Simulated assay, not measured.
Amino acid sequence: MTLYQKVQSVERIFDQLDKELGSFQKSTGLGCVANCGNCCLKPDINATALEFLPLAYHLFINGEAEQWLENLQIDKDNKICPVLNKIIAPGAKGFCSEYAHRGLICRLFGFSAMLHKNHKPMLVTCKPIKENKSEAVAKAELHIATKTNYPLISNYYMQVRSIDESLGENLFPIRIAIEKAIQTVLAYYAYRKPPETRKIV
């Protein structure tokens, strides 16, 4: 499988997840608190390199990958996601400057379920949503307890890992995961002709 095919495969999983998330949110009313972004400020977010391969590829074809890699390596003490917008610009969807290429963890957190003891699915969401959208949280918890059509974190990570186990198995702090994804793309195209029209926009 070529690197571009891996990017496409990850994107297909993201598309599938977006549809399932949309259906789940529509059924429950669950959604982010406006202008929050607290989850993006967490210094302990972990992710795989593979889920950021689409971002790394996007940066590469736009001539930004090497600069991003340099910035990440210079600013090693910073634990916050490097894609974070600290100020929301007019018309922006939120605090993520690369929202279309955000990772799997960014898409799942707040609106998905995790298997706990006895393989019982439990809602994974944040404190602001729990405090400000308690009715939607209750609907989401009931939905997860009584139905099967909801995003399950382990299912999506297994799907991603099946694309490339070496890139999709290990979890790293989010900055390192992005750095590894960029390094993977740069290494792949070091001795190959760069793509010309295969842009993810």
Rank of each mutant, 00 (worst) to 15 (best):
P82H: 13
A100K: 15
A145Q: 01
Q67W: 11
N170Q: 12
I13M: 08
V124I: 11
T184E: 14
D75K: 10
R12A: 14
Q73I: 07
W68D: 05
F60D: 02
Q67I: 12
V10D: 01
N155C: 11
L108K: 07
N38P: 05
I182E: 05
I61E: 01
A92N: 11
L3H: 05
Q16F: 08
H143S: 00
K139A: 02
H116Q: 10
M122K: 04
W68F: 13
A138C: 06
G29M: 01
G168T: 12
N155K: 14
C106V: 09
Y157E: 14
L171A: 02
V201F: 15
C40R: 14
A177G: 08
E169P: 08
E196N: 09
K180Q: 13
N38A: 14
Q5D: 02
E196F: 07
P54F: 09
E141P: 00
F60W: 04
V137F: 00
H143V: 00
A92C: 06
P128A: 11
L21H: 02
C81E: 09
I80A: 07
G63S: 06
L50S: 03
K120M: 04
L69F: 10
V83K: 13
A136C: 01
Y157N: 14
V124Y: 05
I178S: 10
I88Y: 08
F109Q: 12
G168M: 06
S166Y: 05
P82S: 12
I45K: 11
Y156G: 04
Y150N: 01
C126E: 08
V124M: 03
K26Q: 02
A92H: 11
Y188I: 03
F172S: 03
L84W: 06
E66C: 09
I176T: 13
I129W: 01
L41Y: 12
T28A: 00
D75Q: 12
Y157W: 14
I163A: 06
Y156R: 03
G63D: 07
L72C: 07
S162T: 10
I144Y: 04
L72M: 03
T48F: 06
P128K: 05
R175E: 06
D18R: 08
L50D: 06
I129S: 03
M158P: 05
N85T: 10
A56T: 09
L108S: 09
Y189V: 09
I45L: 15
L17Y: 05
M114N: 15
M114I: 15
